[in-house]
Design a protein around this nucleic acid. Sequence first.
DNA 1: TTGCTTGTTGACCGTCGGTTGATAACCGTA
DNA 2: TACGGTTATCAACCGACGGTCAACAAGCAA
Lengths: 198, 198
Amino acid sequence: MNRPSYRRLGVDERRRQLLERGAELFTSHPYDELSMSKIAAEVGISKALLYHYFPSKQAYFEETLSAWAEQLRERTEPDPDLPPIEQLKGSLDAFLALVEENAIAYKNLIRSAAGVTEIRELIDEVRLKTAQRILEALYAQEPPPKARTAISGWLWFMDGACLNWIEHRDIERTELRDLLLGVLMGALLAADAVPDLA
Amino acid sequence: MNRPSYRRLGVDERRRQLLERGAELFTSHPYDELSMSKIAAEVGISKALLYHYFPSKQAYFEETLSAWAEQLRERTEPDPDLPPIEQLKGSLDAFLALVEENAIAYKNLIRSAAGVTEIRELIDEVRLKTAQRILEALYAQEPPPKARTAISGWLWFMDGACLNWIEHRDIERTELRDLLLGVLMGALLAADAVPDLA
DNA sequence: TTGCTTGTTGACCGTCGGTTGATAACCGTA
DNA sequence: TACGGTTATCAACCGACGGTCAACAAGCAA
């Protein structure tokens, strides 16, 4: 008689669909311009169902981007057999490639997603871990305050430069990579904290 | 008979009060944690009156900070009689002093910046103008792309380093200033774009 | 056909930024 | 002292947000 008024999917299938569509939407629109209602409408379900599968908008966002984060972690993992400088160079290349591939997503991420406390903490954590990775590679012991400040600033430099790069697209990726490397060295030099690299 | 249920102030007086209290509130709390209702309650008026004096929350916020912005502009205005390097040094000193004096406000500003569109645009504009000012001082013509990217990144570096500085407070202001100067030079060097300064 | 499981929904809540028409405080005047 | 006009002020409202909940119905097993 009556056709069903909605299609009933298995939990796994629905979940997969929501993560997939969510990734598409969240990477192509700023976080705060996407309401849960809009997402639900876009997918063709009710908002309540979204909240049945994810406890909050933030959590949904996080899960949605977890695949992306995993890729970031993997691809920027340095080759331990190489000398420190080369490790850094490789990681930077990988990072910039990822940014270039996902320019819009990166832009939206930096520009808007960080405003949500939990997400910002996530990004801060990535930055902090990256800083630690670099500092550990460069120093045996506790790094001096100026070096720590310099590295912290440099990571911000990276985001700023990447945004500018994406915006204008008038320099090569390798140029940007060398710029970033050079600035890092310059920063450590200016911090009177150039470690032994040779 | 009946005591008046509210006090009626002159436009100028009320306006001054709202700007004053607004400045206090906006510099001591993150932007998105302050609702217009809360502000109104805090001041002891209705929300509608707030909107009678200011067209929007953003505009209110901006006007509230305009005195601060004016101070920033004035105090960082370089002395044109000095050589470029000294101009920059002076501006940096002034900027860092201002940040140190208003550490909490600065922190709130930068932190809310990521997520709140209005603030982000405000800061982006300041960044852009500052970058232009620096580039104009350094180059006669249109700056090369790499230099532009480097400057843009450096401004982000500054914010990141300032936040780290405020957070830890374990280096001197002059040290940070020299670090920033050194990094700027390093960045321009890495961008193959060191201008004539001597 | 019935009944059970559970995926799914419409209606609701409090709060947000923002709007509007009525109200009442204050001042000039008589 | 009373009154009338100006306008500073407010209560009530709006649509949209993130989030919640009891109830419905799709699909399978009997």
